[in-house]
Amino acid sequence: MINVVTNEDVICIDGNVQRSGIKVGTVYSFLVDGMLIDTGTQCLEAELIPIYEHQSFDLVTLTHSHEDHSGLAPWIQRHKNVPIYVHPKGINICAQHCPYPKYRQLTWGVRTPFDALPLGDEIQSRSQEWKVIYTPGHADDHVSFFHEQTGRLFSGDLFVTTRTKVIMDSESIPIIINSIRTLLRFDFQSLFCGHSGYIKDGKSMLKQKLDYLENLSGEVGKLHKEGCSIDEIAQMLFPKKYPIIAFSEGEWDSRHIISSIVSSIE
């Protein structure tokens, strides 16, 4: 199911993914000044194509190469004939056929290969110049886009929620913290998030996430110093076992939060 709304002259395309009538996730694409930021996921292709057929845009920029953000890039490349940009670390990933586990294929669909161009430090849309900010932690090729004059920040998957409970084994909480600190140095208020959409008080919310992660890191460090194991710390701080842990066969787990923090201490 797709909902399209406009916030601050940004067209927000909200893709609601359901399986057997159960909502499994929401993914946003954004269209601003002739630039499409992220493309949505392949499993919503039938609903997204009519939107993209009737919208005018000159280029696509990806916050990162994950399939829920790049799923429609192959179709756009074939049918819209516009350039698609990603951080240089994501170019080879985009060129691969479906380079992700089966459970993610079942969730988001099968993304076929496409050719991406490398992002630099800035990107030009029709009338606006955007700063490209390297913000790794969730993915090695993750970037955010900032337009200084309007104060709009597009943060991909860096925010999502103020209180992170599970992460992928490839993610790093200390690196995410550094990336959030980087973004908070910029003068923005509204934030456009790849999974939470438009957040009017985005800077305040991102600061809340930073405070949570910093406090969590301090607590993990204290327990680690006291001799607690990673599993013991995870059980104390995150006793709930979320369904995605079993569904992903452990690629997502609260334990990865602890281990990424501990690895930065040792």
Rank of each mutant, 00 (worst) to 15 (best):
V24E: 06
I11F: 07
F188G: 13
D33W: 06
P74V: 08
D141N: 04
W108E: 01
I257A: 02
E45K: 15
T182E: 11
Y212D: 14
L223D: 07
G21Y: 02
N215K: 15
D121V: 11
Y100P: 04
I11H: 05
F238V: 00
W108M: 01
H79G: 03
K225W: 10
A46L: 10
F30Y: 15
N81Q: 12
T61Y: 06
R185T: 14
K102R: 14
S70R: 02
G40E: 08
K89L: 07
N178P: 03
I133R: 09
I199Y: 12
A46Q: 14
S127T: 15
T63L: 05
C228W: 09
C228Q: 10
L153F: 13
R19D: 04
S170R: 04
V4S: 06
G90R: 00
G250T: 12
I76P: 00
D33T: 06
D14C: 12
A46P: 08
D121P: 06
M205R: 15
D14R: 14
L210M: 12
I51S: 06
H97Y: 09
G151S: 11
P174N: 07
V143H: 08
D169C: 10
K222L: 15
E232I: 00
F188I: 10
P101W: 02
E122R: 09
Q96P: 10
Q55N: 00
H66C: 02
I11P: 04
R78L: 09
L72Q: 04
A73P: 02
E45V: 11
S127A: 15
Q42A: 14
D9L: 12
V17W: 05
S144D: 12
S29K: 03
V82P: 05
D58S: 11
R126S: 12
D9C: 12
I244E: 04
L183Q: 05
V10N: 13
Y100V: 05
D231V: 03
V4D: 03
S259V: 03
I11N: 05
S125H: 06
N178W: 06
I167F: 04
R185F: 10
R19I: 08
P101R: 01
H54N: 09
W130L: 15
S229L: 02
E67A: 10
W252V: 04
V24S: 01
T61P: 03
I84E: 01
E67G: 08
G15W: 06
K209F: 10
C98Y: 03
Q149I: 15
